[in-house]
């Protein structure tokens, strides 16, 4: 298990407990009191460390190489997933996956950016950085869901749309705009879960939803902390400071009214227990999906539009005399 610097004390202690247990078993000696005491200590340490994560520590957790990917979640949350490929125009973009699956016995369309789980897969999936055709595929599947009255669930984990030559040539900006616009008016329930990284337009293109949920160690902002630091100080190594400024944690976004709920992860992060994390997500999806499924579709779209219409903070000069 790769450990971050700040979690070393916990990881080391856990290692010691493991060794002691092993030794006990081999030597047939009873250290159960010592072990119990160490475990109490470990659990206190875990709480101390993981309940006080800085924003940038959360960003790093969101990027943990062992964190469940979209396909991992699809396997754990849904049954009988049928992946549907291709944008019908140019190619199949492996950086976005999508298809139909059963959620609690009901067919839904599920879509999300896909990071690779190893170097080979990362290269095949372009490190989870989608091209315009990925967004075109996503839009195709969303319209298909609308046609058949299926709810759409998007699982978002993307640092951004790919900034490449061909991506630009094929209209990256245009495709994102189209996704955002068309998603806004789709006459079917949409639920988004930001499971890891919510990087700018590349994330928003899949995130115009009726309910937006976010895992505890996920981030969502207009720019990555590294890019923000580069712009502010010409120094991407100051990303931790930028992460503080950007207010990109789920707790901030809940306060701002951008998202609807925060899904708790196991102490130490989603990568420590994929099953537990998925059970958590499943119960949140179940609860929120039930609400939007019941709504009249006209009202649903109207409320979706109203949700985004409200967002923005400014002073209105004409009414400023009243303030």
């Amino acid at each position: 298990m790769q450990a971050f610097e700040w979690e070393k004390p916990v990881v080391d202690l856990e290692e010691r407990i493991r060794e002691l247990k092993q030794y006990c078993a081999q030597a047939q000696m009873d250290f159960s009191e010592e072990i119990e005491s160490l475990e109490r200590k470990a659990s206190a340490l875990r709480r101390e460390i993981y309940e006080n994560l800085t924003p940038f520590q959360r960003v790093l957790m969101a990027r943990h190489p062992k964190r469940p990917t979209t396909l991992d979640y699809i396997g754990l949350l849904f049954d009988d997933f049928v992946e549907l490929h291709g944008d019908r125009t140019y190619r199949d973009d492996g950086a976005i996956v999508g298809g139909i699956a059963l959620f609690e016995g009901q067919p839904v369309t599920v879509i999300g950016p896909q990071k690779g789980r190893d170097t080979k897969e990362n290269i095949a999936r372009n490190f989870g950085l989608p091209h315009p055709e990925g967004y075109r595929k996503a839009l195709r599947l969303m319209k298909q869901a609308e046609k058949f009255g299926r709810p759409i669930i998007t699982l978002i984990d993307v640092v951004g749309a790919y900034p490449g030559i061909e991506a630009e040539e094929r209209g990256q900006g245009l495709m994102i705009a189209q996704c955002v616009e068309e998603m806004s008016f789709l006459r079917t329930p949409i639920l988004s879960v930001i499971t890891g990284e919510g990087g700018s337009g590349g994330a928003l293109a899949l995130g115009v939803a009726d309910r937006i949920l976010m895992l505890e160690n996920a981030w969502y902002s207009v720019i990555s902390p590294e890019m923000c630091a580069t712009i502010l100080w010409r120094d991407s190594s100051r990303a931790a400071e930028a992460a503080e400024l950007l207010r990109l944690t789920p707790m901030d976004l809940l306060k701002f009214g951008i998202i609807d709920d925060v899904i708790t992860e196991p102490l130490g992060g989603a990568h420590r227990d994929h099953e537990f994390t998925s059970r958590q997500i499943r119960s949140f999806i179940k609860r929120y999906l039930a609400v939007i499924r019941r709504m009249d579709v006209n009202q649903l779209v109207e409320e979706r539009l109203a949700r985004f219409r409200r967002i923005g903070r400014f002073h209105d000069k004409s009414s400023q005399s009243l303030l």
Binding site: V180, S184, V208, S221, L253, F256, I258, F308, R309
Partner: peptide, 16 residues
Amino acid sequence: MQEGIFSLMQMAKTAQ
């Protein structure tokens, strides 16, 4: 950038 998530959401608001 200085308005973070609020700026990002303007993309959705204007597109709508």
